[in-house]
Computed example of a mutant assay.
Amino acid sequence: METELLNTDVINNMQSWIVNNQGLLIEYAVNITAALLTLIIGFMVAKMLTGGLNRLLRRKIDSTIADFITSLIKYVILAFVIIAALGRVGVQTASFVAVVGAAGLAIGLALQGSLSNFAAGILLIAFRPFKAGDYIEAAGTAGTVNSVQIFTTVLMTPDNRMIVVPNSNVLNGNIINYSKEKTRRIDLVIGVSYSADLKKTKEVLTRIINEDNRILKEPECRIAVGELGASSVDFVLRPWVQADDYWNTRFDLLERIKNELDANGIGIPFPQMDVHLFKKEADGQLRRQDVA
């Protein structure tokens, strides 16, 4: 009986509080709804605005710079949207900004790596050692540049893997840009037997180079004996090609050189090992055994 009376009193008190504070509840509900709408609409506007701006900038400037600028603008807009939403639910934004500013030093110390990546991203955009679409080697990896984000550089490998590299790692290491120049040199080392006719070998290699239309006439291809190795005479071939033709030309040259050298009876040595077996006889002497 006492429990039923207690429950009845609680319900009555709640109903009374709701009736007395109806206006306040309605105000809170409106503010919360407005804050949610502010967040949703703000995020949608940020996405649409930066998407349209990115397409516009790509027509005027390099896509790498366009992606970086629009990413930065997007995060700035989202920060204002969140502050506006907090203000709508009654949070004093002035105090909030002051607290964020006061905590900025601590956050900056805690996020030194992120801040260095941000600064490195700005420097990469400013000095432009590469652009979107370039094939580069940096920070111990290689791939085609997809974009430079605020904190990271995105690379795509030839087998379609995405590699995300911190900007500071890219900037602080060596950057090799294979796409910067229009032409590239192919460096090949072809080893032939010591018994091979060097003059004939050079004629065969020269003919192969001259018959490939992808190889540029200028600069002239260098064909010469580069080294007298342990088991071979090593020729160096250094033809120049357009950067886009580099890999296909290299693969085709290696295949044709092998076929042409075989057709002309020019041997290509390969490592060999002679194994000798010895058997210890009863008298303690070692006797060599022939292996069939």
Rank of each mutant, 00 (worst) to 15 (best):
I215C: 01
I215S: 02
I215N: 06
L216V: 02
L216Q: 05
P219W: 10
P219F: 04
P219D: 06
E220F: 04
R222H: 02
A224C: 02
A224R: 05
A224D: 08
A224Q: 09
A224G: 01
G226F: 12
G226W: 09
E227S: 13
G229H: 07
A230H: 12
A230M: 10
A230T: 09
A230R: 11
S231A: 13
S232Q: 14
S232V: 12
V233F: 10
V233A: 11
V233Q: 06
D234P: 03
D234M: 13
F235E: 04
L237E: 02
L237K: 03
L237S: 03
L237P: 06
R238Q: 15
R238P: 01
P239Y: 04
P239N: 06
P239R: 03
P239Q: 05
P239T: 08
W240K: 00
W240I: 03
Q242W: 07
Q242L: 10
A243H: 13
A243F: 12
A243W: 09
A243M: 13
A243R: 14
D244N: 13
D245K: 03
D245Q: 05
D245G: 01
D245I: 02
Y246T: 04
Y246P: 00
W247P: 03
W247I: 15
W247G: 09
N248I: 14
T249Y: 07
T249C: 10
T249R: 07
R250V: 10
R250C: 08
R250F: 13
F251M: 08
D252S: 15
D252R: 15
L253S: 05
L253W: 05
L253V: 04
L254W: 00
L254P: 00
L254N: 13
L254F: 03
E255P: 00
E255M: 08
E255D: 12
E255R: 12
E255C: 02
E255A: 11
R256F: 00
I257P: 02
K258W: 01
N259S: 12
N259A: 12
E260W: 11
E260R: 13
L261F: 07
L261W: 09
L261I: 09
L261A: 08
D262Q: 13
D262H: 12
A263E: 14
N264L: 02
N264Q: 11
